[in-house]
Design a protein around this nucleic acid. Structure first.
Lengths: 215, 215
DNA sequence: TATTAATGTTAGATTAGTCTAACATTTTTT
DNA sequence: AAAAAATGTTAGACTAATCTAACATTAATA
């Protein structure tokens, strides 16, 4: 696969994450490339069975394409962690470098990176790192009430849809994907002192904790 | 500069090292590319003032071209050291990976590599690492007799051309570029116990040491 | 020195990835 | 449902890097 094809696959994967369907226009916008160019690449990837494509229909990654994309994502996320934790670069500095290193062809190199980092499962954003077969760890959402103090989670769902509950979440600026770090758990009432999105510090009652699903 | 242009510059620099003049044929052989392809790239590099070229004449790097080549060489050698010393890869494994990493565009990354390695001046082969301005450290050859025990040097010249001396060097398989490691220096007669090319162990008298120039 | 061999160059084709301009289809709006 | 807007596709051109086939020059040899 060429570097360009890899970048298209990454973009395709990223767009497919949003649930929305993938259009030529969105790919073009994301990669800052004109639509006709995307169109011809889409045909190319389709011939290689990396995507499913029919004229005027929306585009989907095939299993094969998704796996390739995840393998690149694995290299990217491992690299970012490596640059940050081993080489001491700042979080804001690592992305551009990782965008280049992710295209290296060397299992040896990335296996060693993985090893040096202790086979991490998540990158510092809490994003899961695909394994060496291009599989994402099956994430089972857990109620926050069952989680451990000192760890960071991401909100992935709620078990209660009462307006009052959702209004409360809004009021503390908590949305799907928001980061929740458990500072301490009160032994007595199981309430939790938490830090939200790395900033706001607040306390969740046991009832709230039982209704928040996290990863 | 494109990746391909960088590879041509590296090849050009390597060929210029041998003293022999650079021909289209030799570039083609080194890069495993056909002569007409080289010919058109040579014109391209010439337009960019990276080489001096006239039809049917032999090719030379310009100052600008040489500097570019040395900057790539710097990235390559730093990377090899990094892969070996920081990541614990084997010497035979690092070259192919370094060939890829040397093309990364990130001063930040290579400065950090340089820093982590303690601003090394030589790679493990004893090859000098160009500085960040593409300058090679001015190597001043020293008589071995003035060198310290425990260190590794490379034979760079001799101060005596007697047949008997040269025959002796031949007999211990010592040539320009051979590695000489000083094991110990005898206080009494200044003779040195040395290891040659990482293998042969022998002893040089003070007179021999005075006539060997090393880096 | 004349011929042959080696090396170098030109011409023209090919592929990947990009573009613009023109045309086609689908979706949205009136 | 017709018109307009948005989106998608085709056609054709361009650049970088490669190739093969043919031709040109220089170097070696008889």
């Amino acid at each position: 696969m060429t570097l360009t094809e890899e970048n298209y696959l990454k973009a395709l994967h990223r767009l497919s994450q949003n649930g929305e369907s993938i259009s030529v226009k969105r790919i073009a916008a994301l990669l800052d490339i004109k639509m006709p160019t995307v169109n011809s690449m889409v045909k190319n990837l389709s011939e290689k069975k990396l995507i499913k494509y029919e004229k005027y229909k929306s585009i989907e990654l095939t299993e094969k394409g998704r796996k390739q994309a995840l393998l690149i994502l694995r290299k990217h996320r491992l690299t970012e962690l490596f640059l940050k934790d081993v080489m001491g670069l700042g979080w804001e500095e690592v992305h551009d470098i990782a965008e280049q290193i992710e295209h290296l062809q060397s299992d040896l190199f990335f296996n060693r990176v993985d090893e040096m980092l202790g086979h991490p499962k998540f990158d510092p954003h809490g994003e899961p790192i695909p394994d060496s077969h291009g599989r994402l760890p099956q994430l089972k959402a857990t109620p926050l009430s069952l989680c451990q103090s000192g760890k960071k989670y991401q909100l992935s769902g709620v078990l209660n849809n009462d307006a009052s509950f959702l209004t409360y979440l809004n009021s503390v600026d908590l949305q799907l994907g928001s980061q929740i770090e458990i500072i301490t758990v009160q032994e007595f009432d199981k309430s939790m002192a938490v830090k939200l999105n790395g900033k706001i510090k607040t306390v969740f009652s046991a009832l709230i904790c039982q209704n928040l699903l996290v990863l």
